Simulated scan of single mutants.
Amino acid sequence: MIPRRPGRAALIMLGIVALLYLLELIDQLFFQTGVMSRRVTGLDTNGIQPRELDGLDGIAWSPFLHLGFGHLVMNTVPLLVLGWLCMAGGVRQFVAVTLVVLLVGGLGTWLTGQDGTTHLGASGIAFGWLLFLLVRGFFNRSAGQILVAVVLFLYWGGMLWGVLPGGQPNVSWQAHLFGVLGGVLAAWLVRRGDRTHTARYARGDDQPGRLGS
């Protein structure tokens, strides 16, 4: 339900968020930032630009970029709390889940985003982490994880309105929607991996000193 080493998990998340603030500070000090359009400048030009090959690498960079400190501040608490909770399965699982959310959310945004826009921000990752945490308990049939999911839904369930088109101007609902789908896929993949590992262990494939035929 919570990380086995909560202190280490907290330090990792604080380090990740600190990096985001450092990048935004560099952008503010040395580059001009703009609004969500083709006219963005500085580091923000590395965001996702739908259906443009030059914007495809933005899938990797966009979660690290924000349209000013106000944008980043709004994402800070969800990133810290949801990221920390996602480390309950260990750092390796956290990285795997994040990569699935990043790829699904980024590719979905690149394919469906409006022409002439640049999509930035870590909110798509936060949406993916939230859905991962909401559905993993049902996949795992874990009462404790379902309880955590209920608490998270009561507190942050309103975030899910952000997946609807046109809910807020200059907000990438595509990143939110496909981040959500990435979170569900990640939860399913984690559960499938756990079942495979359990089955292999039951057969003795993972027991020390035993070789599979």
Rank of each mutant, 00 (worst) to 15 (best):
F69L: 06
L79M: 10
M159P: 00
L102S: 00
L80Y: 08
A10Y: 11
F178H: 06
V40R: 10
W161E: 13
V135N: 07
A186P: 11
V135C: 03
T76E: 02
R200V: 06
G68A: 04
L103I: 12
F178Q: 01
S37P: 15
L103T: 11
R141C: 08
L56V: 12
M36E: 09
L107S: 07
G108P: 10
L53K: 15
V151M: 04
D44F: 00
V73C: 03
F64P: 00
D57S: 13
R5D: 15
V101G: 00
C86S: 08
L103A: 09
P50K: 07
L147Q: 05
R210Y: 09
L120P: 12
G193L: 00
P78Y: 05
G121D: 00
F127M: 09
L79H: 09
L134K: 04
L160V: 14
P50R: 13
I59M: 02
W188M: 08
M36D: 09
M1C: 02
V171G: 01
W110A: 02
G42L: 00
W173K: 11
L177K: 09
G83E: 06
D57W: 03
Q49E: 07
L160Q: 11
G34T: 05
W161F: 07
L67K: 15
F138P: 13
I146M: 02
L29W: 12
M159V: 01
L22D: 05
L85V: 13
L111Q: 12
R210W: 06
M13T: 09
L103W: 10
A96Y: 07
T117L: 04
P50S: 13
G108I: 07
A126C: 06
L189T: 11
T118V: 14
T45G: 03
G137E: 04
V135H: 04
T112G: 02
D115S: 13
L211R: 10
Y155V: 13
V100N: 01
D57I: 12
P169I: 06
G113Y: 14
D206S: 04
A18W: 13
L189Q: 12
Q174H: 13
T196K: 06
L107Y: 10
D27Y: 06
W129D: 04
P78N: 00
W188D: 05
Y201C: 03
D44W: 03
L185Q: 02
T196C: 03
T112F: 03
R38G: 06
R141V: 15
A187S: 14
L130K: 14
R192D: 10
G158P: 09
G209V: 14
T33R: 14
T117Q: 12
N46M: 08
A175I: 04
